[in-house]
Nucleic acid binder design. Sequence first.
DNA 1: AATGCCGGGAG
DNA 2: CTCCCGGCATT
Length: 533
Amino acid sequence: MDSRYILEKSSVGTRVGVGGVDSCRAGRSVLHDTRVPTVEKNGPMPVYTHGPVLYKFVVDVGSAAEVNGERTSSKGNGLSPGGQILHMEKTGRGDQKDTGSTGILKRASPTHCPVIKGQLQGGFMHLDINNPGKQAELANSFRAAQVQNVPPTERQPLPSSHIPVPRNRKPSGHADKEVMAAAVLTSLSTSPLVLYPSSASTVPEPANRAWKEVLSASYSSSTSGNWSWDASDQSVPSTPSPPLSNDTNKNFLLSSQGDDVSEDVTESTHFMFEDPIPRKRKNSMKVMFKCLWKNCEKVLSTSSGIQRHIRTVHLGRNSDSDYSDGEEDFYYSEIEVNMDSLTEGLSSLTPTSPTTAGPPPVFPPPLTDVPHSEHINMNGSQSHAPTLLSQSAPSTLCHIRTDHAYQATAPVSIPVGPELAGLGSGNGTGPGTRTGNGISVSWQSPPVIFKGVPGPVTHVRTVSIGEKRQPAANTHTTVNKTHALITPPAKSIPGTRKPRGEAKKCRKVYGMEKRDMWCTACRWKKACQRFTD
DNA sequence: AATGCCGGGAG
DNA sequence: CTCCCGGCATT
């Protein structure tokens, strides 16, 4: 209901919101504006969501300070209270006609939106987020608006090619959020260069590079001059320099593959480590880099790779020198490739890292860049950067469940690595460790463990799992494992029961009276977890 | 008989 | 899953 109301009142806002959504998929549709009607049809949801935001925006931007105060808190339902919303609208309109908002609007998007309403502002925000193409324009207009309402201190002339806003912002955001957003926008648009260093910590580059990138952006439709973004979004300098000191990496990356591939893997791995937090951007698209040099159709998975390629092959520079003046940027573009298929390909190449993330479970040392990209980056699909900085794509790859990576890795390393076993043991060994213990991996991959892991560990694990466990003594364990490979069916044979462990179990130790002190397994009449043989 | 715990079943 | 428990093998 309310939403509709809003819709009607502010078709623009609605449209914008939807447009944003669309753009996500479409990538860069430029004319949302025209679609106003369509959008409206789209249904209340989007409208609803965006409506309020827009509103607030207006308020913030607009003249009504008083309203602002009240407004802030009232969100989606703001309309219902009636007084408030209505009030707002009135205010908005009123303003439109003569003061700030109107002016802003007009300036903001005369071209884009035939329909003019205060809400427009909000719309911009969203649009910006999703539509790189328009971003520049919008950004400008928005900025213009900002200038009017932002304290002199904040306004600065520097134009930016686009305004990065975390996409999928909650439209329902509170006033402060909006303000924040505005602030961010402002600051961003203001001083890209400033932003640069912080976000693109990895790559110290000449400032002028930014310009180059912008330029390059223009030549490639896919790029929208996201320099700053991608920079932030995890980056690998022209020189592949793994911030990860992981030897593990190496271990798991049986690098017997082409340069590109291995590199890719490395990077992804790298990313993975960088990002302990599972990300939401799980798009199945991977960004690849295609050489635009005439007659050269080389496609690489990493910007650094492609750059190197260009540098060496086309520019005739020394391949081993890391030096890059960014010129390569002009000669390649990004293309999106379906991740799934890609992954498959990879996996076929390397059984070790089906997920591309071969690396071990060891937990990811949080890395510095991560947060940055997190905030600034809009979205995987969106990040098209001409820069070598944009490694986001590969990273996406890595996102694939760390857990899985584990599991995938496990089988391979098992035969070889007692280390892993050790790792596993950590999980299951503790007396306290019961079924509760989260490490699903260890539980789920018992077979694996059997093969490679030495005694005690195996034991514990098995026990905790509740799997049929073989009562064999430690000494035997090893043997058993070996056998396990050969004669697994033995287990299933009912007659075969391992001799009872000598150790006192919970029952014996605590007695029936203190049954609650038993380990869970014992309580459940399962193999004791606490006192292993 | 007391224990230990596998196999199953219920919620 | 988690919790229980019948029932069998061992001690």
